[in-house]
């Protein structure tokens, strides 16, 4: 009885923490949603619930001839999707090598990955511009994807390597004794066990380009090639007249698919590794 009561109290505690967090999280988001439904252009209306409900900003995004929103959306999906897929492949290969193999430059490589993330990138963009210009990929989505895929390696290789280190070596060693080749071990043993972390990597790399406006602003210059973040940022980049409400509407329309993708990938995060896997 006592134990049950304790249990209940604990659960109440846990749920109230979640409740409190939900308010903290949803309040600004709902506020932004309210803004996006507000008729005017200003962020400041008298209350969180707009007086004049209107879908005018959403309508503008999709129907106005000056709006490239649909195009931006498509571009962002292309960039984010490709980046997620390519990054998972590239990163898992590199991380696997660093986690399981001994080779020349392994230790130095690990340190280098770490250090590469430490330097502020303020002046670095210029070099990327010139590089892409040299190989003719300026103002293209492929050029942008290439840089994202390369740039994510140091961070995500760390992430995946850390995870792979927790997968017992006995698993791949025993498979190897059974005659499995390098690639077989990687594809059949390691990858399935690493699904949760790979899901995280895919998610990261889907979202980075979706939210980044700095790099695209250097590389893309035709409006039809803009990604969504860059397009949105330009709504409010003007010194004198900002269009916050339209910006909020456009932002809402990215937040929704990302939440859905998270829901979808959560399945892997939650059920990917059951207790069986690590027991070996």
């Amino acid at each position: 009885m006592n134990r049950k009561l304790k249990n209940t109290i604990e659960m109440i505690g846990v749920y109230s923490v979640f409740g409190f967090m939900s308010i903290m999280i949803l309040y600004p988001l709902l506020w932004a949603l309210g803004m996006s439904l507000n008729e005017g252009t200003s962020l400041y209306s008298s209350s969180i619930i707009p007086e004049n409900w209107s879908l005018v900003h959403y309508q503008w995004l999709f129907t106005d001839p000056n709006s490239n929103y649909v195009n931006w959306y498509k571009n962002s999906m292309i960039v984010s999707g490709s980046n997620a897929i390519l990054s998972v492949i590239m990163t898992s290969l590199v991380a696997y090598a660093f986690s399981r193999y001994k080779f020349v430059g392994r230790k130095a490589g690990l340190y280098t990955f770490l250090i590469l993330q430490m330097f502020p990138a303020m002046m670095a963009m210029v070099a990327l511009y010139i590089l892409l210009n040299l190989i003719g990929l300026l103002d293209t989505l492929s050029g942008l994807i290439l840089i994202y895929v390369g740039g994510q390696i140091p961070f995500n290789a760390w992430l995946v390597k850390g995870y792979l280190d927790t997968i017992p070596r006995e698993l791949d060693e025993s498979a190897r004794i059974d005659g499995a080749g390098h690639l077989t071990v990687f594809v059949k043993i390691i990858l399935p066990l690493a699904k949760p972390i790979l899901a995280v990597v895919a998610l990261f790399n889907f979202m980075t380009p979706l939210f980044d406006f700095l790099l695209p602003s250097i590389i893309l210059h035709s409006q039809k090639n803009y990604t969504i973040a860059l397009g949105l940022f330009n709504f409010i980049n003007d010194q004198f007249s900002n269009n916050f409400t339209r910006f909020a509407a456009g932002a809402m329309l990215i937040a929704i698919p990302v939440s859905i993708i998270y829901l979808f990938l959560q399945k892997y995060l939650i059920s990917g590794l059951t207790s069986g896997g690590t027991k070996g």
């Binding site: 932004a32 979202m207 932002a251 998270y262």
Partner: peptide, 11 residues
């Protein structure tokens, strides 16, 4: 989990 992750779903 979905709610807790939401801040991350907004740029």
């Amino acid at each position: 989990r979905t709610i807790l992750i939401l801040p991350w779903a907004v740029p």
